[in-house]
Computed example of a mutant assay.
Amino acid sequence: MDIDPTFGVFFKYSEQLRQRVVDEYLAEGVGTATLAARHGIARTVIRDWIGRYRQHGSAGLRKKFSHYDASFSKG
């Protein structure tokens, strides 16, 4: 069974940290391996943040919460 290494870790890190890591990637031109070692974050997670940022800007790094009432889940 394959497990997505980024599953569940998006919310583990603050929005400020996600933005700082992406900013470092863009401004300093360092690789994801360097950033992973510097911050103790998996490279796959950092690549995911960079992709979200490129696609959606800062909004792609924000936490999103969805709450559905019982009637919605019963379809």
Rank of each mutant, 00 (worst) to 15 (best):
Val30Ile: 15
Val30Met: 04
Val30Asn: 03
Val30Cys: 05
Gly31Arg: 01
Gly31Gln: 07
Gly31Trp: 04
Thr32Asn: 08
Ala33Arg: 12
Ala33Gly: 04
Thr34Arg: 09
Leu35Val: 09
Leu35Ser: 03
Ala36Met: 04
Ala36Gln: 04
Ala36Gly: 13
Ala36Asn: 05
Ala36Val: 10
Ala36Phe: 02
Ala36Trp: 00
Ala36His: 03
Ala37Gln: 15
Ala37His: 14
Ala37Leu: 14
Arg38Thr: 13
Arg38Met: 07
Arg38Trp: 01
Arg38Phe: 10
His39Met: 08
His39Leu: 08
His39Trp: 02
His39Val: 06
Gly40Phe: 08
Ile41Tyr: 02
Ile41Gln: 01
Ala42Cys: 06
Ala42Tyr: 01
Ala42His: 09
Arg43Tyr: 02
Arg43Ala: 12
Arg43Ile: 06
Arg43Phe: 02
Thr44Gly: 09
Thr44His: 05
Thr44Asp: 09
Thr44Val: 11
Val45Arg: 07
Val45Ala: 13
Val45Asn: 05
Val45Pro: 00
Ile46Thr: 00
Ile46Leu: 02
Ile46Phe: 00
Ile46Ala: 01
Ile46Asn: 00
Arg47Phe: 03
Arg47Cys: 11
Arg47His: 08
Asp48Lys: 06
Asp48Val: 05
Trp49Ile: 11
Trp49Phe: 05
Trp49Val: 12
Trp49Leu: 04
Ile50Glu: 00
Ile50Ala: 00
Gly51Lys: 00
Gly51Asp: 02
Arg52Cys: 06
Tyr53His: 10
Arg54Asn: 08
Gln55Gly: 01
Gln55Cys: 00
Gln55Met: 03
Gln55Val: 06
Gln55Phe: 02
Gly57Ile: 11
Gly57Thr: 06
Gly57Gln: 09
Ser58Ile: 15
Ser58Met: 07
Ser58Arg: 15
Ala59Leu: 14
Ala59Gly: 07
Ala59Glu: 14
Ala59Met: 07
Ala59Ser: 09
Ala59His: 11
Ala59Pro: 00
Ala59Tyr: 09
Ala59Trp: 06
Gly60Trp: 01
Gly60Ser: 07
Gly60Met: 03
Gly60Asn: 02
Gly60Lys: 00
Gly60Phe: 04
Gly60Pro: 00
Gly60Cys: 03
Gly60Glu: 03
Leu61Phe: 03
Leu61Asp: 05
Leu61Val: 05
Arg62Ile: 14
Arg62Leu: 12
Lys64Phe: 09
Lys64Leu: 13
Phe65Arg: 14
Phe65Cys: 10
Phe65Lys: 12
Phe65Asp: 13
Phe65Met: 12
Phe65Tyr: 14
Ser66Gly: 11
Ser66Glu: 12
Ser66Pro: 01
His67Glu: 15
His67Asn: 13
His67Met: 15
Tyr68Asn: 15
Tyr68Glu: 13
Tyr68Val: 13
Asp69Gln: 05
Asp69Phe: 06
Asp69Trp: 07
Ala70Lys: 12
Ala70Tyr: 09
Ser71Glu: 14
Ser71Ile: 14
